[in-house]
Write a protein that binds this DNA or RNA. Sequence first.
DNA 1: TAGCCGTGGAG
DNA 2: TCTCCAAGGCT
Length: 359
Amino acid sequence: MTSVFSDKLLTWYQQNKRLLPWRDNPQPYLVWISEIMLQQTKVETAIPYFQRWIDRFPDIATLAEANQSEVLQVWEGLGYYARARNLHQAAKVIMERFNGQLPENPTKLRSLPGIGEYTANAIASIAFHQNYPALDSNISRVIARLIALDLPVSDKNAKQQIHEFVWVQLPNGKADQFNQALMELGALICTPRKPNCNQCPLISECQANQQNRQNQIPRRIPKKSLPHLTVTAGVIWQDRRVLIAQRPQNGLLGGLWEFPGGKLEKDESLHSCLLRELNEELNLPVNIEKKIGVYYHAYTHFKITLHAFCCYPVSRSSPLPLNHQALYWAELNELAHFPMGKIDRQIAHTISKESICLS
DNA sequence: TAGCCGTGGAG
DNA sequence: TCTCCAAGGCT
């Protein structure tokens, strides 16, 4: 059964939906990849990554057989790298336990790494046309405004009310359109700040608009200020090669490569910090030569200012991967083949372009 | 359960 | 280098 509400919503969606590379042909694999890429990521950001991913890994079997370093390379720049590691691992599980086919059941989908409640329901509805609501932050915001919910959407009670609302409104057999329509509305019209209420197809049913509180709903939770760290990194040269180190599998930038270094401690100079870190991480005494640059970056939970230096081992020696998965002496033209985070990629560009320390 | 996990764009 | 936050999941 349908309602005036869902009729208005679906009509608006048919007339205003964006043409997206995964939308016209919702094959399960394409829907899965798109949903993972879109977690905490804007559509415009994800599109070129999606195209590259599908070109490189056209199906689940190809993905399962790939090397993790290829997977992370294609993902480089998108962030939240656990998503890529989980996609890779899930592909292997699908080959082994599900005959190479993405399961249709939301419970089975949720057993795969990287798929939680939202993504399982999104795949079940969009790829397999099952009747499940997929509650993401867009939909939660839209519903919160529709019912003038005076709570943060993360609140347990708020989630309950939102959940009840979508289950009541969900048109049987059209969950795929319903879910995507609400998300599209949240992304294009019912935006977090300054929603475009005069273009909204649901304006006459929106309690927040009627109360002129659309800018106060949903309620925001004040954020803590981020700690700001100072960090050093060494570009260590030997035989015209530079030393790169692979970060541990889990945690920040897991599996990516970096120029080794670490956090500045209290009352420590940049040079002593770098010497100490290279000894702790690599058991490698070095001489520090010229400074390469200063890099600022904001992660999700802290900000850093990183000072990068050219270094040379005091004597010919072999560093040890005491804090890393692996070490590698790379030629400059090899660096592009090793997945890196934003700052380390910038450093790699700098030393490649300017031949710093090489002459 | 609340903290961890990237990056880019908008304001 | 200000704040906010985007189709969340994991521990």
